[in-house]
């Protein structure tokens, strides 16, 4: 039987309620968009296998409830993630302001080398815009994140942002991937390696033998 995937890892979607986390995800995994979505309670799951630089990557995506009250619960899931989308809504100043709080939660609860990316969603709602594009860029720069303005409705930058975060996670785990390449046969479940994440080897910073 052909291998279904080479690498497996978890991405997490966080951000205020109603910024469109579930819609981003549905557009990415099923290429669907519904303007009236059912609220997410707790956490929802989706999965997709994509190919990045010849590596078949299976990503599990955890879609969390946005209400502040739920954060006690959803924080518990941060430590299981290798990559995190921080999502705000360009038509809601408040959701943008809250990104700072979301980032500090991530710093506190997520594993050390977790990759983050900033998303300004609902880019199609130009007439309702409250957060300028450059404000998003500025914030992303401050935190050293990549930034995308997306629209689940018009399918803008959806695939790009998911692929980008996947690449970032792959790069952050180059060392493990090298091992995968030499062994060639076994798949690598980063999702299962989370407990070892804190080990001293850390991110490989000088390895110039990047093959990707």
């Amino acid at each position: 039987m052909a291998k279904q995937y080479d690498v497996l890892f978890r991405l997490l979607l966080i951000g205020d309620s109603g910024v469109g986390k579930t819609c981003l995800l549905c557009r990415f995994t099923d290429n669907e968009f519904h303007s009236s979505h059912i609220s997410t309670i707790g956490v929802d799951f989706k999965m997709k296998t994509i190919e990045v630089d010849g590596i078949k990557v299976r990503i599990q995506i955890w879609d969390t409830a946005g209400q502040e009250r739920y954060q006690t619960i959803t924080k518990q899931y941060y430590r299981r993630a290798q990559g995190i989308f921080l999502v705000y809504d360009i038509s809601s100043e408040r959701s943008y302001q809250h990104i700072m709080k979301w980032v500090s939660d991530v710093d506190e609860y997520a594993p050390e080398g977790v990759q983050k990316i900033l998303i300004g969603n609902k880019a199609d709602e130009e007439q309702k815009r409250q957060v300028g594009r450059e404000q998003g860029q500025q914030l992303a720069k401050e935190y050293g994140m990549d930034f995308y303005e997306t629209s689940a409705c018009t399918n803008l930058n959806i695939k790009e942002s998911f692929t980008r975060l996947t690449e970032l996670v792959l790069q952050a785990h180059r060392k493990e991937l090298e091992g995968l390449r030499t062994r060639a046969s076994n798949e690598l479940a980063l999702a299962e390696l989370e407990e070892e994440e804190g080990k001293p080897d850390g991110p490989a910073n000088s390895s110039k033998t990047c093959w990707c």
Partner: peptide, 8 residues
């Protein structure tokens, strides 16, 4: 927001 997302 949630009312519109209750049994849509």
């Amino acid at each position: 927001l949630d009312i519109s997302r209750t049994f849509p």
